[in-house]
Nucleic acid binder design. Structure first.
Length: 558
RNA sequence: UGGGGCGUGGCCAAGUGGCAAGGCGCGGGACUUUGGAUCCCGUAUUCGGAGGUUCGAAUCCUCCCGCCCCAACCA
């Protein structure tokens, strides 16, 4: 059994429980399931659950099912089903042949409902929704029994069959479990098992007009599939007694439900309702807006599945409410991309640089390293000429303290090219710098300072060879770490969460970049080709995450 | 005033009677043809609080305080 423990992944109480259950023989292997309702897109919080569910199964050589919890046809669509499948696959997990739907079990669930009726454990109730609420009592006041609670088994059976046959209008009757109207746990006050909904289901069509409630469907679905550990979030802790009650009343195989705290991420919102609101009210461009915490959004932004998995591993699994700093997510992406993304030079806000002593009409190609972290990535040629573009931020007159970049009379290295010295500036009528002039040292080709101290190295692009692109810079979607906290959370949307730069100049090797390609733009950050708006000849890049910016910190302090 | 949970540094989080892991962040330094990366160093005499048990407590007991979830025919 020690073999099971010899893993280097961080432990958590769920993994420990699984280990115990194996040791004690309660279960022979590990079977988990990820059970999304297809009524929205998956987000980073779901990724935590997916990594837990699939990760646990993988670790113990078990299996993890993908099961759609599709018991509410009014809200669920195949569009969401497909999007969810794509997201789980993209994250890197495989459910193999184990794709299921709660709706696969509608027949079985129905039979089980009749079985409960026959045992006198369920009854058809005629109370209206308002009455049901009223009879339920409150948190501190016990509920009252429905006047229909003690109907005879035969009458219940007859009524239930007629409910299924469509004889009664929507909402007019329910099937309820007969448990305890005085229970402190409201879930046990005769929970509804079935409601009448004459709505077509995306998979079963018009076959049914009664649909099972979550509690009645979930545990039994787990049981049917032989799930051992049914992992869910804390708000279902109160449902566990009901989960167990149904299983026991039916006398069927019993999985074990264990709850953990859901993920809260700073500077964003995570509830499906709020995400949907952002989309519907046009505060973002859609579910896959690169600012969204959805997997579709993160993917489009340029996040890698590996970075997200790493993040999910690092945040841990526990039961305490939490608010994880989004900086950790960003860190995980940088760490992943630092090793894998090829470097390129791109000038986001161009400023013209003229090298006065560089022969007019002359041109050459210089060698640039594709990835200093990965020698195998090789090198490439970058064209150099008399007129270049440099970043507006890389020239200051006068220079602030500790500024290492270009300013009048100062030397700086053009990455992989030459050492240049600023000799002059041209300004427009408003005093804005329009062109910077400089002289280069022909002997410093490649950037060799030959013993000189050159503190600054800046990136550049040859003006004549540059490729134009649109670059979208993203920042946190919300200005507050916990926008959820306030009623008017929508006013907290960061007005600078998206900045569009239309005049960016890229080195020519970027001309053929394909949707989804990721690069590090030297000294700036990691960027990926937008999968929706980019096209050959009209490149659009998204900034996935910026590089650590030490200068920004220094400047902010002075 | 009912039921279920949770409280370890700024944020996550190990630890479950033997003397506070780790990560992010933050601060400092080294190195550097990305002010990137990397590498060092620092960052809780203390575990929500107060009592108690014990040679010894974040871990056990008692009381108190705070926070979260539950009153959809949603999941």
């Amino acid at each position: 059994m020690s073999e099971l423990e010899a893993k280097d992944k961080p432990s958590n109480f769920i993994r420990d429980a699984a280990l115990e259950d194996l040791k004690s023989g309660r279960y022979k292997g590990i079977v988990t399931r990820f059970p999304p309702e297809p009524n929205g897109y998956l987000h980073i919080g779901h990724a935590k659950a997916i990594c837990l569910d699939f990760g646990l199964a993988l670790e113990f050589g078990g299996r993890c099912h993908l099961r759609f919890d599709d018991t509410n046809p009014a809200k669920e669509t195949t569009e969401y089903v497909e999007a969810i499948k794509a997201d789980v696959r993209w994250l890197g997990f495989d459910w193999g042949p184990h794709l299921y739907h709660a709706s696969d079990y509608f027949d079985r669930l129905y039979e089980w409902a009749e079985a409960l009726i026959k045992k006198g454990l369920a009854y058809v109730d005629d109370l209206t929704p308002d009455q049901v609420a009223e009879y339920r009592g409150t948190l501190t006041v016990p509920g009252r029994e429905s006047p229909y609670r003690n109907r005879a088994v035969g009458e219940n059976l007859d009524l239930f069959r007629r409910m299924r046959a469509g004889e009664f209008p929507d909402g007019s009757k329910t099937l309820r479990a007969k448990i305890d109207m005085a229970a402190g746990n409201l879930n046990l006050r005769d929970p509804v098992m079935y409601r009448i909904r004459k709505t077509a289901h995306h998979r079963t069509g018009d076959t049914w007009c009664i649909y099972p409630m979550y509690d009645w469907a979930h545990g039994q679905s787990d049981s049917i599939e032989g799930v051992t550990h049914s992992l869910c979030t804390l708000e279902y802790e109160d449902h566990r007694p009901l989960y167990d009650w149904y299983i026991q009343a039916l006398g069927i195989y019993a999985p074990r439900q264990i709850e953990f705290a859901r993920l809260n991420l700073s500077h964003t919102v995570m509830s499906k309702r709020k995400l949907l609101q952002l989309v519907e009210e046009g505060l973002v461009s859609g579910w896959d807006d690169p600012r969204m915490p959805t997997l579709a959004g993160l993917r489009r932004r340029g996040y890698t599945p590996g970075a997200i998995r790493d993040f999910c591993e690092r945040i841990g699994i526990a039961k305490a409410d939490n608010l994880v700093d989004i900086a950790l997510l960003e860190h995980c992406l940088r760490e992943d991309l630092n090793l894998r993304a090829e470097r390129r030079m791109a000038v986001l806000r161009p400023l013209r640089l003229i090298i006065e002593n560089y022969p007019e009409g002359h041109a050459e190609e210089l060698d640039a390293v594709n990835n200093p972290e990965d020698p195998g990535a090789g090198t490439r040629k970058v064209p150099f000429a008399r007129i270049l573009y440099i970043e507006q931020d890389d020239f200051r007159d006068p220079p602030p303290p500790k500024y290492f970049r270009l300013s009048p009379g100062v030397e700086v290295r053009l990455r992989y090219a030459y050492i240049v010295k600023c000799t002059g500036v041209e300004r427009d009528a408003a005093g804005q710098v329009t062109t910077v002039r400089c002289e280069y040292d022909p002997a410093s080709r490649g950037g060799d300072a030959r013993g000189r101290k050159v503190k600054g190295t800046i990136h550049w692009v040859s003006a004549a060879d540059a490729v134009d692109a649109e670059v979208r810079l993203y920042d946190h979607l919300f200005t507050a770490p916990k926008p959820d906290e306030t009623e008017d959370w929508k006013t907290l949307v960061n007005p600078r969460s998206l900045e569009v730069l239309r005049g960016a100049k890229l080195e020519p090797s970027l001309a053929g970049a394909k949707a989804g390609d990721r690069f590090q733009f030297e000294r700036q950050g990691y960027f990926s080709v937008d999968s929706r708006d980019s096209a050959p000849g009209r490149l659009v890049f998204n900034r996935a995450v910026g590089l650590r910016d030490t200068w920004a910190k220094i400047e902010a302090k002075t």
